[in-house]
């Protein structure tokens, strides 16, 4: 088994991060073209805890090198199953993801947690990402090791791109919300002006 782990901070409030998180793989993110589609398959607020539970299916373009494909089989797309839990009372987002494609040969399990940063709980958000990668493909330990090593390296590259792309989404999102507020303000002012004129 190989483990990938990183933590970092976003200069955005938890509310902004948790909202933008839903559009992380949208058109504002130019860094993750390998993510082709994101589908929501179920969503429910648990009445007992107030936690929003969402299941999503993430479709990625496969771009493994030939030697990996020759071992795992050459699927064109790979699917990821993700369950997320948003606890608004405790301001915590937890996302758990696992691979569906090649699940008999390889297990990639990722957990991400977003929480307000203790240094500036209203302005910054702490992000923790951890993934465990285990290859099951029978035969030599050497092959398992190479597959795990390749996967953890690829995971690391994608995690970096994912973070950069998410920064883009956060920035665009803040702009869009500011514009929306400005529009509302202008509309309201013009109403006041109109009424004043009457």
């Amino acid at each position: 088994m190989k483990i990938f782990q990183q933590s970092s901070e976003f200069d955005y409030s938890w509310e902004e991060v948790s909202t933008s998180n839903w559009r992380k793989y949208g058109p504002w993110n130019e860094k993750t073209p390998h993510v082709i589609a994101v589908d929501t398959i179920s969503r429910k607020v648990d009445p007992a805890t107030g936690i929003l539970r969402t299941e999503r299916l993430i479709t990625c373009k496969q771009s493994a090198p030939k030697w990996v494909n020759s071992i795992l089989g050459g699927e064109e797309q790979s699917l990821v199953y993700e369950t997320s839990y948003v606890d608004p009372a405790n301001k915590k987002v937890t996302m758990c993801a696992m691979n569906i494609t090649y699940a008999d040969l390889l297990s990639v399990r990722e957990t991400c947690v977003y929480q307000p940063a203790s240094s500036a709980p209203n302005a910054k958000t702490n992000f923790i990402q951890r993934a465990e990668i285990t290859a099951f493909c029978g035969g030599w330990q050497k092959i398992k090791n190479s597959i795990e090593q390749f996967t953890v390296e690829r995971f690391q590259q994608n995690a970096q791109k994912g973070k950069e792309g998410f920064e883009m989404v956060l920035e665009m999102s803040r702009k869009a919300f500011a514009e929306q507020r400005e529009m509302l303000r202008i509309q309201q002012e013009s109403k006041i002006l109109q009424q004043a004129a009457i």
């Binding site: 398959i41 648990d46 007992a48 805890t49 936690i51 539970r53 299941e55 299916l57 699917l79 199953y81 369950t83 839990y85 606890d87 009372a89 405790n90 937890t94 758990c96 696992m98 569906i100 699940a103």
Partner: peptide
């Protein structure tokens, strides 16, 4: 044929549900 793969993934995810849906 994705629906059957999803069913397996859901079964594998039970532990996460138990851990993260727990009342605080």
């Amino acid at each position: 044929g994705i629906d059957s793969m999803l069913k397996e993934a859901r079964d594998d995810n039970r532990e996460n549900d138990a851990e993260h849906m727990r009342p605080k």
